[in-house]
């Protein structure tokens, strides 16, 4: 009697948990869809920008514009870690934090002084708990990052890079390969090294207004800002993907658990009935004398 009641109570509890995780899964799936659209919508601009950068970029220009400088021996670096504000997304934030720590360890092993900038409540909390000082701690960037968010992160870093205060800036974020594959990646955003354009056709003889190098110097900040913007957008989509997967697993586990508990319950009930029957039969036998 006692056991069956306990099991029933447990089934009820697990069922409630399952309902909650299932709802969270659905919410994440719907947010994921919209976040994914934003990732796709950000592609045309990034593609064009990369194409133009690849065309304009020549290493010789590096000396003329501070934003293009290529430090030979970096002394001070910054790691910008993007995490989420909310948890219950599996190992999403843990992976990002680990990647950021690996980046910092590498810099330090190379004798580079490294500061850590963190966006997202989860990352901030993790490093505060470990008493690791943060150069920047922000938790005001939501599910739908805007270009203004990217600008507020990128512009101070670019300024400090130009003045020589920083020699390298890495950003750590979750690359949105697919909703179920969101590996933490590290990307060097400063100094700028544009990916060589694949299959550059014949050189196009552009009219430049103003000169090519002046255009480049103005396009680089757009490029850096856009790189951070895309990291934010991908991170937001990855977060929802990771949460959907985590909540789906939780829901499936709850189902399994309910099934197992139901079996235990049936067994306990069966045992109870058997017990009662035995008692009745025993009692009747005794009365017969």
């Amino acid at each position: 009697m006692q056991k069956a009641r306990l099991v029933r109570r447990r089934i009820r509890a697990v069922r409630k948990t399952r309902d909650i995780t299932h709802t969270m899964e659905m919410v994440a799936a719907s947010k994921l869809r919209r976040a994914q659209e934003r990732v796709v919508a950000a592609r045309p601009y990034a593609a064009k920008l990369a194409e133009v950068m690849a065309r304009l970029f020549t290493p010789e220009l590096a000396e003329r514009y501070p934003i293009l400088r290529q430090p030979v021996r970096p002394r001070r670096a910054a790691v910008l870690l993007l995490t989420s504000n909310r948890g219950l997304a599996g190992a999403f934030n843990a992976n990002l934090i680990r990647e950021a720590q690996a980046a910092m360890a590498e810099h330090r092993a190379a004798g580079v002084e490294t500061e850590l900038h963190v966006a997202g409540r989860k990352g901030v909390a993790a490093f505060r708990f470990r008493r690791i000082p943060l150069a920047l701690a922000r938790s005001d960037i939501g599910d739908r990052p805007a270009l203004a968010d990217a600008r507020s992160l990128a512009d101070p870093l670019m300024l400090r890079f130009e003045t020589g205060e920083l020699d390298a800036v890495d950003v750590v974020f979750a690359h949105f390969k697919s909703p179920v594959s969101t590996p933490a990646v590290r990307m060097r955003i400063l100094p700028v090294t544009p990916a060589r354009e694949k299959g550059v056709g014949r050189a196009i003889h552009y009219l430049f207004e103003p000169s090519a190098d002046e255009i480049l110097a103005r396009v680089v900040p757009l490029y850096v800002r856009n790189t951070i913007y895309r990291a934010l957008v991908e991170n937001a989509a990855s977060e929802q993907g990771a949460r959907r997967t985590a909540m789906k697993n939780a829901t499936d586990n709850a189902e399994d658990m309910i099934e197992r508990l139901t079996r235990t319950l049936n067994k306990a009930r069966q045992a109870e009935i058997t017990q009662q029957l035995a008692e009745i039969v025993g009692g009747a036998e005794a009365l017969k004398g």
Partner: peptide, 19 residues
């Protein structure tokens, strides 16, 4: 609206890159 004034573009314009 280019950086130093307006630029008009018609069909078959020469390759151009302008701020």
């Amino acid at each position: 609206p280019a950086w130093d004034g307006e630029i008009g573009i018609l069909h078959d314009h020469a390759p151009l890159l302008a701020l």
